[in-house]
Write a protein that binds this DNA or RNA. Structure first.
Lengths: 186, 186
DNA sequence: TTGACAAACTAATCACATTAGTTTATGATA
DNA sequence: TATCATAAACTAATGTGATTAGTTTGTCAA
């Protein structure tokens, strides 16, 4: 008895995201997604154009969720507090959605408009906050890149289990954030 | 006419590394490695215990090369210059071996002593330099984590093509390094 | 009521990983 | 020198996942 109209691209993508968060990004196969949705593999092709398109859709979903998360954290704040809030929100998102978070970077096609827009949103939020610090020339761009590299690197190593020592990771992240913020003050 | 004794584990791993650097880590398949070595797929099983073992071997190779690279950069230097040299060497390695570099990030199995040792080497080199700055308590650990997160995040974003704007990336990396070094001075 | 369409399905094919079992070159030993 | 155990190659077969082609069947609108 085929042809029940419950599936769509968003539902398929969400299922993939849940699998990614729960079992890791490498466990996201069409077979796994189909099974979770109670459907045969080829049925997924009505909604996504194959595995790499599904990965692309996951990247877009992740980037948009992340941007929303960061936006909420930044609103109503400014200066050091805004930077800290953004960094913390970014990290919290990666913790809450480790699989989805990794999908952003693995996007097969980095040219996709929605993905670019959502990624740019995050950077713009950060850039606007940093510009208020009154840095000159391209220094604000360097700072944005530095902050983004730092958060990304930190959470990537965390998610992968790269920090062996038992010392509190929150404190390490605080040190990193504070140190970079000091570099924003001329 | 089988049985020519030229292959061994190191050769297979190296071939995989070259493929990874040239075409990306996801292009490392037993099929691709076998073809490059002019051999049938099952022959590889005489030297590695399957694809996931091959990935482990690549991680070990990468970690040891990276540690060696960083060690050479650090020797004979101290203070700020040592930190800068280490950061630059780390980044240069990732640029020279983008595929291998990504291979090292997988969480090491607890039994993989060589991988753990090589990874620890890099951290120890950094830790020894940083301890000379005279930070107190666990602060040296926070600093090591911060520096590592920063380099890793930066090169990961670079390799993935995450920096859209044309502003010089070397300068951005310099800003990041300098800013973190400032945090090492009490 | 019916017909077009969307969305499910089955079947077939291809690539890759893995295992089992076979062949052969090589190096040590009688 | 002959032979023999072994390591390293091979062929063959199996399983999983992705993909495409072609078929069936609900559903909605005319």
């Amino acid at each position: 008895m085929p042809a029940k109209r419950n599936l769509d691209r968003a539902t398929v993508t969400l299922a993939a995201g849940i699998i990614a968060d729960e079992f890791g990004i490498e466990s996201v196969t069409l077979a796994a997604v189909a099974e979770r949705l109670g459907v045969r593999i080829p049925s997924l092709y009505n909604h996504v154009a194959g595995l790499s398109d599904l990965r692309q859709a996951m990247a877009v979903l992740a980037a948009e969720l992340l941007a929303e998360h960061v936006r909420r954290a930044a609103v109503g704040r400014s200066g050091d507090a805004a930077v800290i809030a953004i960094m913390d929100a970014y990290r919290a998102f990666a913790h809450a959605h480790p699989g989805l978070y990794r999908a952003v970077l693995r996007a097969p096609d980095a040219e996709e408009t929605r993905l670019i827009a959502a990624s740019q949103d995050v950077l713009d939020i950060l850039l606007r906050v940093i510009e208020s610090f009154g840095l000159r020339d391209g220094e604000a761009i360097h700072a944005v890149r530095g902050l983004r590299s730092a958060v990304h690197g930190f959470v990537d190593l965390e998610v992968v289990g790269g920090f062996g020592m038992p010392l509190d990771r929150d404190e390490s992240f605080g040190w990193l954030t504070r140190t970079l913020i000091q570099g924003l003050h001329p």
